[in-house]
Design a protein around this nucleic acid. Structure first.
Lengths: 242, 242
DNA sequence: CGAGTATTTGATGCAGTTCAACGCTCGTGG
DNA sequence: CCACGAGCGTTGAACTGCATCAAATACTCG
């Protein structure tokens, strides 16, 4: 069963920008369908040009990029509301891969329709551009942390970021959220080895600051966590929803 | 004296995408003026909302981001053709700062006009979005290198990237280009200490692979440089010009 | 119950940081 | 016209955070 954009549960959530009734109609027409995928499904592949773009309705995922030497960088963690595949819509090909980490429900758009969307609504076009700019910002902020912060601080920072995004997505309950990601994913995201990531997590857990275990991320002392991270990730602006 | 968009020297260069006569007119109307700045001028400041956006006509610059602890991450090096300030055009504020490293000539646009630009031309809107997506890609690629490659490889990779962008901008002559950046800038870009950056550069210079000295970047053996970098930065697609 | 995957822990070594000192060039002012 | 200081590059020495290697301990699932 397909959700009508008008009933999209994401629109109601705080943290997402509202848009006009008119734009809602334009977006409805842009929407091609829906899709549900199992955990571990490749949605978009580095180097390929997918015919589709997606908005995440529910579930979590991972964007990543491979190096010739086989190592992997996790570009970012994917949350509900994220718009995926813009690169393949605009550029020659995807520059990174996107995979689901949980079961995921996605809103599907046709790449070929993006020109029509832009022509139909300048404000929707601005929203799409906004998501691209916001995405760049998220990546740049992570790059800054990777480039300039020590290991433990990077881990703490990533935990805050995930927690905050989880709050917006409504995934946090009683100071904790379910996470499908492995410690290896976190390590690859922050440019650290698995072993060192594990030891940093153990140390934060031991200090009663935060824990990442058994598929749950729990923050016990946000103040301390921020101190360890050497500052907070910037609070995101309300996200434009496509 | 102001250059007419129709005579814009950048448009003629290879490496930039062409656009229609109609879009040229739309862009001309969007253009508010021109500006020349001395080296070291702050063009856009992290946290502020500038009333203007820019396209670099000539000269080189630096995007960077400060951490609470005083450290600095260089997000990217700015080349002619780059479009600056989209974040302040779309989001609440700039998320990083941009400064000139040489004398720079800039094409100036009013932030408030971007909505009109999008309304006037869907294809120009797509081009703006393309630049945002391309920028994200550049940052993600750099992040990958910082997160996953060893020090010497990062330095080599950055040299290739700068050299390639220099070629496109027409700044390379006889295998070398003038660069205004300090070793500290390179260090901050690749997440390394100044000392280690200096030693890596010395080692590449000693091996007759490439040199960064006296304000010049020279590549002697691109093959070897690519090998040290552990692979090549992806070749950029033709860049949309705003 | 055995195989495969994820987490945990200990031990070892080195890549890269930090500290420190020195040289060079250039601009400024006495 | 030389002295001085500031900025940048270079080099050496010592320390350490993190990677790497290795192995044990859970868990899950067929």
């Amino acid at each position: 069963m397909i959700t009508d954009c008008r009933d999209c549960p994401l629109r109601r959530r705080p943290g997402f920008a509202t848009f006009s009734r008119e734009d809602l109609e334009v977006t409805r027409r842009f929407k091609a369908g829906e899709m549900t995928v199992e955990p571990g499904t490749a949605l978009l592949d580095e180097g390929t040009k997918s015919p589709q773009m997606f908005t995440v309705l529910s579930g979590l995922g991972l964007r990543s990029k491979l190096l010739p030497n086989g190592r992997r960088q996790v570009i970012s963690f994917v949350f509900p509301g994220d718009f995926l595949g813009l690169q393949s819509g605009l550029m020659d090909a995807m520059k990174h891969s996107v995979a689901s980490s949980t079961r995921m429900r996605l809103c599907v758009f046709e790449r070929a329709e993006i020109g029509r969307l832009f022509a139909a609504s300048a404000s929707r076009a601005l929203d799409v551009t906004w998501t691209a700019a916001a995405e760049e910002h998220l990546v740049a902020e992570a790059m800054t942390q990777i480039g300039q912060a020590a290991g433990r601080a990077r881990i703490a920072w990533a935990m805050i970021r995930l927690y905050r995004r989880g709050e917006i997505a409504g995934l946090v309950e009683n100071g904790a959220m379910e996470i499908p990601w492995r410690q290896q994913d976190l390590a690859d995201a922050m440019g650290l080895s698995l072993v060192h990531t594990n030891k940093s997590l153990a140390s934060l857990r031991g200090a009663q600051i935060a824990s990442w275990a058994d598929g749950r991320l729990r923050v016990d002392d946000m103040g301390a966590l921020i101190r360890v991270a050497g500052g907070e990730p910037e609070a995101p602006e309300p996200r434009a929803l496509i």
